[in-house]
């Protein structure tokens, strides 16, 4: 069983939901990321989505755009992100790490080399925002044979036929984008999300994480009532941005938000 599968199975046994934080790797500096990953696990994270910075993050709002700019200014490339995962694994062989980003840095590295390195350093899943299942003929099998989960987004606009097709190509979990928009956009509507998650459940066996628009403990709790996992990104990256000049303050600020979310999600 993969680390992601194991994690969701164990959570289910304990009747808990996955808390899935997203941070952009190398933001605001390369040395910040690995300690922050460990701290997030300590604060209650079950899976970590590690953003690979890209110069043209088309699906992201201003908060993560700026995070990408800071990470790129610090010189963060895909190779550095993979090295961070290797370092993280020295202290944590249990928490799944999912790389999230855009396809182009992977294209330049080469699919095969990327998949090999992911396996070697201990990456568990990959979510490439601009890579739909239709374009996965080549990269899909490379991940599959190495036991790396290919995670896909499902959107409010995704038809039922497509959900079924995506579920077929996906493994690990499905990431439901709670609203039409970019990351960090307006607040989500929990009732709408609940109805969509129900639809997805009828078409897919995989656990369902929900992201986009989860800002605080309250919205995390509300979403945890309907989904298997809660993804929080911009709310954390905001804290990184606020403390970009004093990196020592980043970890406590991010941990505090996550711990609050964890507590709210676990409260009966």
């Amino acid at each position: 069983m993969s680390r992601i599968e194991t994690t969701f199975a164990q959570l289910k046994e304990k009747q808990r939901k996955a808390l899935i934080p997203y941070i952009t790797a190398g933001d605001p500096g390369l040395e910040v990321t690995v300690p922050l990953m460990h701290a997030m696990v300590k604060a209650g994270a079950d899976v970590i989505e590690l953003g690979v910075p890209f110069s043209d993050p088309m699906a992201d709002g201003p908060v993560i755009q700026k995070a990408c700019e800071r990470a790129l200014a610090a010189g963060t490339g895909l190779r550095d992100v993979l090295a961070m995962v290797r370092e993280f694994r020295r202290g944590d062989d249990r928490t799944p790490v999912v790389l999230m980003g855009y396809l182009n840095p992977v294209e330049i590295m080469g699919y095969e080399r990327f998949a090999e390195t992911c396996q070697e350093v201990g990456v568990d899943g990959v979510l490439l925002v601009d890579l739909p299942p239709e374009e996965c003929d080549e990269i899909g099998p490379l991940f599959k044979e190495r036991g790396i989960d290919l995670i896909f987004l499902v959107a409010p606009t995704t038809t039922e036929a497509r959900i079924a097709r995506i579920a077929e190509a996906a493994s690990g979990y499905l990431y439901y984008v709670s609203l039409k928009g970019v990351t960090g956009a307006a607040s989500l509507n929990v009732e709408e999300v609940a109805a969509r998650v129900e639809t997805i459940r009828n078409l897919a066996q995989l656990p369902i994480g929900v992201g986009f628009g989860i800002k605080d403990a309250q919205s995390a709790r509300a979403v945890s009532r309907v989904a298997d996992g809660v993804v929080v990104g911009s709310a954390l990256v905001n804290q990184v941005a606020a403390h970009a000049d004093e990196p020592m303050a980043i970890t406590p600020a991010v941990s505090e938000i996550l711990a609050d979310m964890r507590a709210a999600m676990d409260k009966p």
Binding site: M58, P132, E135, L153, A155, T157, R162
Partner: peptide, 20 residues
Amino acid sequence: ARGHFGRFGGRFVSETLMAA
């Protein structure tokens, strides 16, 4: 049929836009 010119072209966008 899927918008490819040889190895080029295609449809590489986030899921929200696929339906549109």
